[in-house]
Amino acid sequence: METGKNQSLFNGRPIKILLAKPGIDGHDRGILVLAKAFRDAGMEVIYVGLLPTPEEVVDTAVNEDVDVIALSLLNGAHMTVFKKVADLMKARNINDIAVVGGGTIPEADKPKLEKMGISGNYGPGTPISKIVEHITERAAEMRKLKSMEE
């Protein structure tokens, strides 16, 4: 796994990531490719399958103690559905799980998503290495937080 300078944070325990397509959207080519790619990059991947509700996504993330939730939508509903996940995280006071997004997200929506705490928001054609790098950074932040909590 290429975790670079953050290697020490991941010692013994790979990045654990939950992949989800919340909302009603069956376009899963991208998320299946990423699931394989993340696994190849040494992460522990949990793919919750299609059609989970935002509640199911957050519940699973907490139960599985993941570092990162990765959300994908290609149906244009990200501003509603991603927000629901972000709102739930806030309502439950969860700070040590990062949320990243991806899919067909117009440029103008990206700053708004960032403000909700959803980073990345990469579109089609993004090199996997760039996505892995971003997730590794976010996961490292989370591990730092967790180590401070302990």
Partner: peptide, 10 residues
């Protein structure tokens, strides 16, 4: 509720 935000999108 599942349709919220998805109406007319695709």
């Amino acid at each position: 509720p599942r349709a919220d935000g998805e109406i007319g999108k695709c």
